[in-house]
Design a protein around this nucleic acid. Structure first.
Ligand SMILES: [Mn+2]
Ligand SMILES: [Mn+2]
Ligand SMILES: [Mn+2]
Ligand SMILES: [Mn+2]
Lengths: 217, 217
DNA sequence: AATATTTTTTAGGTTAATCTAAAAATGTAT
DNA sequence: ATACATTTTTAGATTAACCTAAAAAATATT
């Protein structure tokens, strides 16, 4: 039985290698886990011992097949609980992450099976992230930042890259929600900001930074 | 912020003093917590330090007002989650306790508020135990073991005293469920077993031990 | 290639929760 | 009241997860 901490390390290693490098550095992990490099080294030895990661001193770490399976189950639980919180308990999408961080560690395969059925086997969480199935699989995800869309082209807003509360609250305020159709009206060269049209209705301005964090299909 | 362990100790102290003695002994707690007396002594010093219990060396321990409030919130969460698991996720009543033991430690007052509303403010859990409200209050509970009912008298089955899986599964098998009306047809003096009629329909025999663990109103 | 900088590991400590074994206090029985 | 038994506490270790400071390895810069 893995501890909460071990599960969180595996999730962190998975997420870091997902978005970039093949070998995850001790420092990158320390930052992600909000802990010190020395503590990370200790934990990597333990995870390596349990065959959850492949670790060579000074060479960084790579998640193993076994470790990845664990990470994907934890991610599955996290995202299913987020769906539950938003769809059933009427939480706003900016309020659910921290609670899901706790719920993702509840150990009961039957609970997750039943929760999944109760939610009618959702494929995406409230932030547009895919929910792995019981076997840790999910379909190919094709999404690009709005920033890559050219003037006069259209896309469907499918996910957020940053899912911090302030960003999500900003999206609420300007009326951007997952599923919305976005048309790029104009790109300001000076600062990379854009004027966009949402659902063929209201026109809004978004900064370059916002455009980078809206994922479109 | 209290640890899971601290919360579990408080719940154990509350439950032991609820069903009996005023001062809870170190050994009673050790048994309930499945740990050793020496560990209990350590923890009692810590809880006392935090004003969650009143502890005098060799004199046993008593929960404080503050500790009781914590215990009642944990119990509230445990029972609300049990309702959720049975009513919404279709768990059987014998499967939910261990999962609720984990869920009861999730920290989010808003989550419990919303869960309570979602479940429509249930007053009792699937085993007939009362659910404390946000302030830790619950109405007076009047219930007696079926064993105290006399021949030819009737009662409504409202709760189980033992909520172990084997007992609950036995009740399922013989068709006894919370809410059923029970009429005592005959008490066998020899072994205290009884013939009872459930909902004016099927007649069954139950042992003395079963009669002690069915609570009636 | 030698030196400086950065990254990572090791060494040694801390805290929470547990344990065993021994000592101290309390309770019971002649 | 004294001896015996039981309960409880203390003493000293252990494990997981963290820390700081120092040493070692890897990387970058002259
Ligand atoms: Mn999340
Ligand atoms: Mn999410
Ligand atoms: Mn329970
Ligand atoms: Mn219950």
């Amino acid at each position: 039985m893995l501890s909460f901490t071990e599960e969180n390390y595996l999730k962190a290693i998975y997420h870091i290698s997902e978005s970039g490098a093949n070998d995850v550095s001790t420092n990158a992990l320390a930052e992600e886990m909000k802990t010190k490099a020395a503590s990370v080294t200790d934990m990597l030895k333990k995870l390596s011992q349990k065959d959850l990661v492949e670790y060579k001193k000074y060479k960084g770490v790579k998640i193993s097949k076994l470790g990845e399976a664990v990470a994907l189950q934890v991610i599955r639980k996290h995202r299913l609980w987020e769906v539950f919180l938003v769809e059933r308990l009427q939480f706003n999408w900016d309020e659910v992450h921290d609670i899901a961080e706790q719920l993702e560690h509840i150990k009961s395969p039957l609970l997750i099976k039943k929760l999944d059925a109760y939610l009618e086997h959702p494929k995406y969480d409230p932030h547009g992230d895919p929910i792995p199935d019981e076997n840790g699989q999910f379909g190919p995800i094709s999404r690009t930042p709005l920033a890559e869309l050219q003037t006069n082209s259209t896309g469907k807003f499918v996910a957020v890259k940053d899912s911090s509360s302030p960003f999500l609250q900003y999206l609420d305020k300007v009326g951007l929600y997952i599923g919305a159709t976005i048309l790029v009206l104009e790109i300001i060269e000076f600062d990379g900001s854009r004027e966009i049209e949402v659902d063929g209705q209201n026109k809004i301005f978004v900064s370059q930074q916002v455009a980078n964090n809206l994922l479109i299909h």
